[in-house]
Design a protein around this nucleic acid. Structure first.
Length: 866
RNA sequence: GCCCUUGUGGCGGAAUUGGUAGACGCGACGGAUUCAAAAUCCGUUUCCUUCACGGGAGUGGCGGUUCGAGUCCGCCCAAGGGCACCA
């Protein structure tokens, strides 16, 4: 039926048209007043306005859009908003490098990216758009912060940061390269700064416990969060110093292994432990050691993987179980001040870090746990951390380590020398950033009154526009006038807090703001209680811990301060993989995909054809490696539907997908094939058979039509289930099969044509979430009324899903030797009889004794012979 | 260092969760159509063996459980991700 002389489908002629039609019909406007349908809130992690959208965005938003359109078709009242995570360092970097104002740079980027997103044809309610750098957003954030202060959720205290002495700025761990600042190259210092903290650790137990209830979250993310929170149970006890120094008479130690106390070899304190700091005042060598530790980076990876270094303080502590047993006290670089008490006792035999350290400094190694089945076990160069039996431990020998732990804790508690303690790895959330392009912290520092909140009626505290980035340090701090204010309390001279919020705060409540943009309050309670929690949240796995944990905490804080009803913001979470591409190198330079060509035999050459290019690994698309494909170029050439379809096909959504030219061409051919299907149909059918929506099995005549009808029902059933499970790639495969069947179908009579018309109409509905523009074009061409975007999702006719005959594979000793076709509800005796008589099977059982027959109804027959 | 994930044809991947391994797509090869090309359509395509019918092997490796293992268990190997101021 296809007429190849017809012109191909031209997306540019249709896509803008349908985008306007959806706008005009207000198809995607969410209405919290609509109580007739169940609500469904779909949210993709909002983008940082870095300049242009990239393929990762296309993939992320295509997935979310499929969910939104699918749920709408299924009769839900859908909220699908979009906004901008607009504060952050890249805007300040741009300001420094390109001499442009962060606000100007940011809002221009937003305009560009909004235009790009709109071209994708996403079903977004754009009326709810905002940027986190809008004062109308961050002003509410400031108000909520003051609520958090009143609710006791905020602290101000000192903490250590990476400090670049040249740029006068705090550095992220990733900005510290080999101990030097990434921009200035200056040696990074550890510096104590007074900072604001949100007391997330108060919620450690709650955040951990509630993970169990997040059933529609990936197991992996829940596990990562649980490890991050890091709950442990152990013993807190004192190791008395033999002499009092700087008014300190004992070390407070936390250990999860009190069972190994008899294997103690030494004690160690963190370089940042108060005692280490005091001792260093009078000890140049120790001061130098501390300075050296400070240079080695603060990240856990640096500390754990780096060399274990120590400094013997010369101090001694008494073993808590034996006053005569003295242990040396070291300052050690692998002891973290932020975890436990910043002081440990070390048992080298049963902790690898302690063992590395003991071997290096010639400290004793005493085995106190041995494996169950090795009575003569002794630790030499590998710590034994497994289960087993206690040895060399008076009163504990023969016990399991677990029982020994319990007994030791009980012993310490009984005579008041220690206590059981639950400890968390999770630290409080430091939210101060010494930067300009963030939300100002609404606090005033007064010499007389201390820290004083900005009065509510003076909110929002807005950023000054006239700032310069030519001096190192925070522009807010050296602005001539911005920070000078009168203290709201005493009226005296005071200064504003010049730090701004961590941008993770901005993204910790935006989903609540989308529910309703109330002018005079952070949230619209009626709207937010209707829409929250988010039913399906979609974003990158890179946010598995921080963003999601902060958002969970902030939601609890908002719950406590009356801004939301829920405690968990995201009922369903999906983490999608990255978009990758081959990399190309030539003469030591990276080449972009359009700077290379492939010749006939697959060799890769520079675009001028001159010389060979080496093809590197497939990696995440990134500017630095130039392995980028610009979504605008792809949309201009192939249209949004093709780009969306390719991003949804091939790879499972949670895994990385590789962008290839062949892949996008394949998607393009499929778009054309679908177009030819309905174009060919309408050329053939000018009468009533052109558009048929409702059809039942009893309306069908003829085997071909019956087969097509059944295939259609199977496709509806399968695609529905796959979309429900976010199995986009599998839904795509089923749609390929359906389209192949449809294009092979020949209509011989009116009944056939009606069946095809029906199948095509259903196909447009099934395609609509994934390639919405072509689906509208097809729907209209067939003669469907209204927009397919507003049409109801088809229901599969389950009466034809199963067939009366089933094909059963027959195995002999677990190997397939033949198949039999039997009635669906055939008797087992008949199945056995048929299986034994199947020609291929017979060969393998002849002359042998049948030991066992396994029949799994509808699945398989296995004959066991000997 | 610690924690986590993933290994299936030439490639991306599928497999109703213990029941026919390789759906679907890409690529390749052969054919049709065409003056020719593009586009389109039809067929073949895990490997080894056989003229063929057929047979054998096969889901990173080695073991195990089971009538039956890509799927469950143990050990090992490889690649990737996260580790608190990038968003």
């Amino acid at each position: 039926m296809s007429d190849t002389s017809r012109p191909p489908y031209d997306p540019s002629a249709h896509e803008a048209h349908w985008q306007k039609a959806w706008d005009d019909a207000r198809s995607f406007v969410a209405d919290e007043g609509d109580k007739t349908r169940p609500k469904y809130y779909v949210l993709e992690m909002f983008p940082y306005p870095s300049g242009r959208i990239h393929m990762g965005h296309v993939r992320n938003y295509a997935m979310g859009d499929v969910v939104a359109r699918f749920k709408k078709a299924q009769g839900h009242n859908v909220l699908h908003p979009m906004g901008w995570d607009a504060f952050g360092m890249p805007a300040e970097n741009a300001a420094m490098e390109k001499n442009t104002h962060p606000a100007k740079w940011t809002y221009e980027n937003i305009d560009t990216m909004r235009g790009q997103l709109k071209k994708l044809g996403l079903s977004i309610d754009w009326a709810r758009e905002f940027a986190t750098c809008d004062p109308s957003y961050y002003g509410h954030e400031q108000a909520m912060f003051l609520d958090f202060v009143e609710a006791g959720l905020v602290d101000r205290r000192e903490s250590i940061v990476n400090w670049d002495p040249v740029d006068q700025t705090v550095l992220a761990n990733e900005q510290v390269i080999d101990g030097k600042g990434w921009r200035s190259g200056a040696a990074v210092e550890q510096k104590n700064l007074t900072q604001w903290f949100l007391r997330i650790s108060d919620y450690a137990e709650a955040l951990l416990g509630a993970l169990d209830g997040l059933e529609r979250w990936p197991e992996k993310v829940r596990l990562m969060q649980a490890n991050w929170i890091g709950r442990s149970e152990g013993l807190a006890c004192r190791f008395e110093l033999t002499q009092t120094v700087y008014d300190v008479d004992a070390l407070e130690v936390y250990t999860t292994r009190p069972d190994t106390l008899y294997g103690a070899s030494f004690c160690a304190i963190s370089p940042d432990h108060p005692l280490a700091i005091e001792l260093a005042e009078d000890n140049q060598e120790l001061a130098a050691f501390r300075a050296d530790c400070a240079k080695r980076g603060t990240s856990e990876a640096d500390i754990e993987a780096g060399e274990k270094l120590g400094f013997d303080t010369g101090l001694k502590v008494q073993h808590p179980l034996d006053k005569d047993w003295l242990l040396p006290v070291y300052v050690a670089n692998f002891v973290l001040m932020g975890y436990g008490t910043g002081a440990i006792f070390a048992c080298p035999a049963h902790d690898q870090r302690d063992l590395d350290f003991a071997l290096k400094y010639n400290l004793p190694v005493k085995t106190v746990v041995r494996p169950q089945d090795d009575a003569h076990f002794t630790v030499t160069d590998t710590a034994y951390t497994g289960d087993g039996v206690m040895v060399n431990s008076p009163g504990l020998d023969g016990l399991s380590p677990q029982a020994a732990r319990a007994q030791m804790i009980a012993r310490f508690e009984a005579d008041g020398r220690g206590e059981k303690r639950v400890n968390f790895r999770l630290r409080d959330w430091g939210i101060s950033r010494q930067r300009y392009w963030g939300c100002p912290i609404p606090m005033i520092l007064c010499d007389t009154c201390g820290t004083v909140p900005v009065p509510r009626d003076a909110l929002p505290v807005t950023l000054p526009d006239d700032v310069s980035f030519d001096k190192p340090g925070n522009p807010l701090a050296h602005h001539p006038s911005w920070k000078h204010v009168k203290c709201p309390n005493c009226g005296g001279d005071a200064t504003r807090e010049t730090d701004t919020f961590d941008t993770f705060i901005d993204s910790s409540w935006y989903f609540a703001r989308f529910a309703g943009l109330k002018e005079d309050a952070p949230t619209d309670r009626a709207a937010v209680d209707y829409w929250l929690p988010v039913d399906q949240y979609i974003g990158g796995i890179e946010h598995a811990i921080l963003h999601l944990l902060y958002a969970r905490f902030t939601t609890r804080a908002m719950h406590k301060t009356g801004h939301v009803a829920v405690e968990e913001p995201f009922a369903g979470l999906f983490t999608q993989g990255m978009v990758c591409h081959e990399t190309y190198r030539h003469d030591g330079q990276w080449l972009s995909p359009d700077e290379i060509i492939r010749n006939g035999d697959g060799a890769v050459l520079a675009a001028d054809g001159s010389s060979a290019v080496s093809v590197g690994a497939v990696e995440k698309m990134s500017k630095s490696k130039k392995n980028i494909v610009d979504p605008d170029d792809i949309i201009a050439r192939y249209g949004a539907d093709t780009a969306r379809w390719f991003m949804l096909s091939d790879s499972p959504p949670e895994r990385d997908v590789q962008w290839t030219q062949d892949g996008i061409e394949g998607a393009w051919r499929f778009v054309q094939k679908v177009w030819r299907l309905f174009d060919g149909h309408i050329l053939e059918e000018h009468d009533a058979a052109r558009f048929v929506d409702g059809l039942t099995a009893s309306d069908i005549d003829g085997d071909d039509a019956r087969a097509l009808y059944r295939q259609m029902q199977l496709a509806i059933d399968a695609v529905t289930r796959e979309l429900e499970a976010l199995g986009f790639n599998r839904a795509v495969a089923r749609l390929y099969e359906l389209v192949n069947a449809l294009s092979a179908f020949k209509a011989r009579n009116g009944n056939d044509a009606a069946c095809r018309a029906y199948a095509l109409a259903q196909l447009m509905k099934l395609l609509s979430p994934m390639m919405p523009h072509l689906a509208e074009t097809g729907w209209q061409a067939l003669g469907g009324a209204g927009l397919v975007a507003d049409a109801a999702w088809p229901q599969a006719d389950t009466s034809v899903l199963t067939s009366d005959e089933v094909v059963l594979p027959v195995q002999v000793n677990g190997k397939k030797r033949g198949e039999i076709s039997v009635p669906k509800d055939a008797d087992e005796a008949i199945i056995k009889e048929m299986a034994l008589n199947e020609a291929g099977v017979k060969k393998f059982i002849d002359g042998q004794e049948l030991k066992k027959t396994i029949i799994v109804p509808g699945r398989i027959v296995n004959l066991v012979v000997k």
